[in-house]
Design a protein around this nucleic acid. Structure first.
Length: 839
RNA sequence: GCCCCCGUAGCCCAAUGGCAGAGGCAAACCCCUUAAAAGGGUUGGAGUGCGGGUUCGAGUCCCGCCGGGGGCACCA
């Protein structure tokens, strides 16, 4: 990008100081950046004030903190540019704003880099953090740098461990064995939320199932509240995110029904959303990996069952979940008894039943459930219609009939509708002790242990006598041992197990020989509460100062990508509720308003090395300047939309900023000139712009707000060139307004312009302009006169004209009269802008 | 398969149910200039994916298609 940004050498430069040195008014972004970055360091205009005596209303603005994977990229450029519009707006509005920054600095890439370079993950991590911090400062985001935090600092992750202990005490952190998602590439287990379509969310490798004992957070205990509290979010969160979370939590209502299995003492419970179809159950299915299957299989069928189970275990998630896959299964050689009609039905094992949903077993009603029907047809099992829907017999067509209808073949339920039958059968089951109403969730507990190094050690000591013993709070943090290079290489077990000195400890309870847990926490634990830490970043008595969080929280505005809909955002909501129950925070939802910015793509595709379509943020800034890049990000379209960098023009942004800068530089009226004496037409534009930009910023329509700033610039330019000229006080008013509005998006040029207008200090805290209502009223408006919906005439009328007067005026129009024969049937008047005459 | 969102000039995008165009890119032309760059200015161009409906009036509301994006997807 060999472009010269130095001051242009003008051939006409004269000796000594001159009044109109043209280079003086040249827009040189790089020079402004250097100058104002220094000034901001001195002036420190973005510090959040903790003083309780400060009367200003508080606002908390937060952007999702970055992972230090290298320098900032285009995506960061977008989020932070958008977030800064709101943060800076709040500064101008006179709020006491908290706008912090930190780093989500634990995670796998650091570890992989360390293995490659035979180094410690911290070296790579903290070097990248410094690079990003420098870039952020250049990018001019209004951060309070004094609150900076890094989750990989022991001062931070100590509190992950402290919180883990609290969760453990409350039974919300527990260990259990079972089939888990294993990423063979990253050599670690994953939470359900981190598996997308059977692949690792991080690296894209196909996930396999493994039987392992792991730590979990009991997020399912909060499933109901996570769902119900979304009512609080309806106003401030995008509907899309709420829908994704609702789907993910997946609440369903139905009944638990107890079936006896021949040869087994205890009845087996199944969950069904269609208890009304109980009389249509013709077989029973158990998940092959459920303990129940192993237990009840008959001797004669055991070999077949074990072979089947082994085959199923080999399948990857992608194969197992494929909708094209034919149903498979094996008869277990036993029968279950239908509790309502005493019928004997065969028990099968099949992998379309999941061991970890409901009770790992189902009653199969092939007539009214497609999956059961597919299975029944494959294995020749009977199909019995119990809900008459008017559709053809599923046994014949292969199409199950899950819809509404009238119950048949169902004893006491015959003749009832589906809804009536559900209520009735639940009543019958409850009376006879055979079942009860039940609710189920798709959400699973959060698997939080990871077999990797660069994360928070789980503060548990395994003692042969005492079991799982938490590391006492006063011994926290459990810091990471000093492992580097090859020692971190994934071997299927946690790297921490390699540090013998670290692993072998005394049991805090009995003093006997014991071992530390060698897993680390999912890094989503770190980000589940960091927003609370910012309120008191140096606090040593707990994860955060409860009093400070009470003052700042909850977060008024959160900005980040939608990819965290069921990851970070769900986990953070869960943590907040637990902390609420612990009495540590006073709110149940952490983020009042959420904005999901889109992605920056290029030529229709996500940027990637393999496509070679990457755009480098630093290079864009070098070429066009920070302000132009930020303006391009904000102006490209609605913030939620993706930005295709091939469709936008940072060069054009730079041109506009140059124009705006010249307007601000050319003002010749003195500071404090009374705008009331200035050009009325320009004043109207200025005040209309203030009014509109204010509303547009508050409703996130930043791209339109920028368009209005462009119009104001054009209007001022015109007044200077072909109106009353640069000395008119209205031009000063327009230029000063422009500087403040523009400072949300292009802070450098705004600061410099503000200074050239004769002001001192930073523009950042200058009060937001207020539109004069008198200047918003137009002298006359154009009224459209339609006949039968077609525009036939225009009238210049007073804005406060009455309906009757306007109608009269419209009917008096020659053009209208020419089209009317006789009295109109109807006249619709929307004063002062429209009259529609229906002939 | 089910659910959600989006289709407006060549392109990115505006438009409380009320004149389809605010802004930008690109294009063409003009001014400034010895020339170019920079700068200033002017102009043209869609009837809103398709088909119905409601309404005095539909880009906007309703129904059905088509296209694009996203979520869930053996969750009983």
């Amino acid at each position: 990008m060999g472009r010269d940004h130095g001051p242009r050498q003008c051939g006409t430069t004269t000796e000594g100081p001159t009044v109109s040195d043209r280079s003086e008014q040249q827009y040189d972004p790089q020079a402004l950046q250097a100058k104002w970055q220094r000034r901001w360091e001195e002036l420190d205009p973005f510090r959040a004030e903790e003083d309780p005596a400060d009367p200003r209303e508080r606002r908390y603005m937060l952007d999702m903190f970055p992972y230090p994977s290298g320098d900032l990229h285009m995506g960061h450029g977008e989020v932070f540019a958008i977030g800064d519009v709101l943060a800076r707006y709040w500064f101008h509005k006179g709020y006491n704003v908290l706008h912090p920054i930190g780093w989500d600095s634990f995670g796998l890439p650091a570890e992989n880099a360390a293995i490659r370079r035979n180094a410690h993950p911290a070296e790579w991590t903290y070097a990248n953090i410094e690079t990003q911090a420098t870039s952020f400062k250049r990018y001019g985001i209004s951060f309070d740098w004094s609150r900076r935090l890094h989750t990989s600092d022991p001062e931070y992750y100590k509190w992950n461990q402290w919180l883990f202990n609290r969760f453990f005490e409350r039974g919300l952190a527990y260990r259990k064995g079972g089939l888990v998602n294993w990423c063979p590439q990253d050599q670690t287990v994953l939470a359900n939320e981190q598996v997308v379509a059977g692949r690792c969310e991080r690296c894209g490798a196909e996930v396999v199932r493994r039987e392992l004992t792991q730590w979990y957070f009991k997020i399912t205990e909060y499933a109901d509240r996570l769902l119900d509290d979304m009512d609080q979010l309806e106003a401030g969160w995008p509907e899309r995110v709420l829908t994704i979370q609702r789907n993910w939590i997946g609440r369903s209502e139905g009944a638990d029904v107890r079936f006896r299995i021949e040869g087994r003492e205890e009845p087996v419970t199944v969950y069904t959303t269609r208890p009304d179809t109980l009389f249509g159950a013709t077989f029973f299915v158990v998940a092959p990996d459920a303990a129940l299957a192993e237990e009840i299989v008959s001797d004669g069928q055991r070999a077949a069952f074990e072979a089947y189970r082994a085959e199923v275990a080999k399948l990857s998630d992608i194969e197992r979940l494929s909708t094209e896959k034919e149903k498979t299964g094996v008869f277990l050689g036993v029968h279950a008894i239908n509790p309502v009609n005493g019928e004997r039905i065969p028990v099968w094992a099949a992998d379309y039943v999941l061991s970890d949903y409901g009770h790992g077993a189902i009653m199969a009603v092939p007539a009214h459930d497609q999956r059961d029907l597919d299975f029944a047809r494959k294995f020749g099992l009977p199909v019995r219609v119990v809900v008459h829907t008017g559709l053809a017999d599923p046994g014949e067509t292969g199409e199950a009939t899950p819809g509404e209808g009238t119950l048949v073949n169902s004893g006491p339920l015959d003749g009832l509708t589906k809804a009536e039958a559900i209520d009735r059968i639940i009543q019958i089951l409850e009376e006879r002790g055979l079942g009860k109403r039940a609710v189920n969730f798709r959400l699973r507990d959060w698997l939080l242990s990871r077999q990797r190094f660069w994360g928070t050690p789980i503060p548990i000591i395994h003692c042969p006598d005492c079991g799982e013993v938490p590391v006492p709070d006063e011994q926290l943090p459990v810091t990471l041992p000093d492992l580097r290079g090859e020692a971190l290489a994934p071997k299927g077990i946690a790297p921490l197990a390699n540090a013998a000195d670290w692993v072998n400890v005394e049991c805090p309870k009995c003093g006997g020989a014991a071992k530390r847990d060698t897993d680390t926490m999912d890094t989503f634990v770190d980000s589940s509460w960091y927003f609370l830490r910012y309120c008191s970043p140096g606090y040593t008595e707990g994860p955060f100062d409860v009093e400070q969080v009470r003052k700042w929280g909850p977060i008024d505005q959160y900005v980040g990508g939608i990819e965290h809909a069921v990851l970070h955002l769900l986990y953070a909501r869960f943590f907040t509720k637990v902390l609420y129950d612990m009495g540590m925070v006073g709110f149940t939802e952490p983020f009042v308003r959420l904005l999901n910015q889109g992605q920056v793509i290029n030529q229709g595709k996500a940027m990637s090395k393999s496509l070679g379509n990457g755009v480098d943020l630093g290079e864009q800034i070098d070429t066009y300047g920070v302000d132009a890049v930020r303006l391009t990000m904000v102006f490209a379209g609605p913030p939620e939309d993706d930005i295709d960098w091939a469709d936008v023009s940072p060069a054009a942004s730079q041109k506009f900023l140059s124009r705006a800068f010249r307007v601000m530089s050319e003002v010749t009226s003195p500071l404090g000139a009374d705008p009331a004496t200035g050009d009325l037409e320009l004043r109207r534009v200025t005040h209309r712009t203030i009014d509109e930009v204010t509303k547009l910023v508050e409703s996130y329509r930043f791209n339109v707000a920028v368009a209005r700033m462009m119009e104001l610039t054009t209007a001022a330019r015109r007044t200077i060139d072909s109106g009353p000229g640069a000395g008119d006080p209205a031009v000063r008013e327009a230029a000063e307004t422009l500087a403040v509005l523009l400072s949300l998006v292009a802070p450098y040029v705004a600061e410099e312009g503000w200074e050239r207008l004769g002001h001192t200090g930073s523009i950042a805290r200058v009060p937001w302009p207020v539109a004069d209502p008198a200047l918003l009223v137009q002298e006359s408006v154009t009224c459209v006169v339609q006949v039968a919906g077609k525009v036939r005439d225009r009238l210049e009328v007073s804005p406060d004209i009455g309906e009757d007067a306007l109608a009269e005026l419209a009917l008096a129009s020659e053009k209208v009269k020419a089209l009317l024969s006789g009295a109109p049937r109807r006249v619709i008047v929307r004063a002062p802008k429209l009259v529609n005459i229906v002939p």
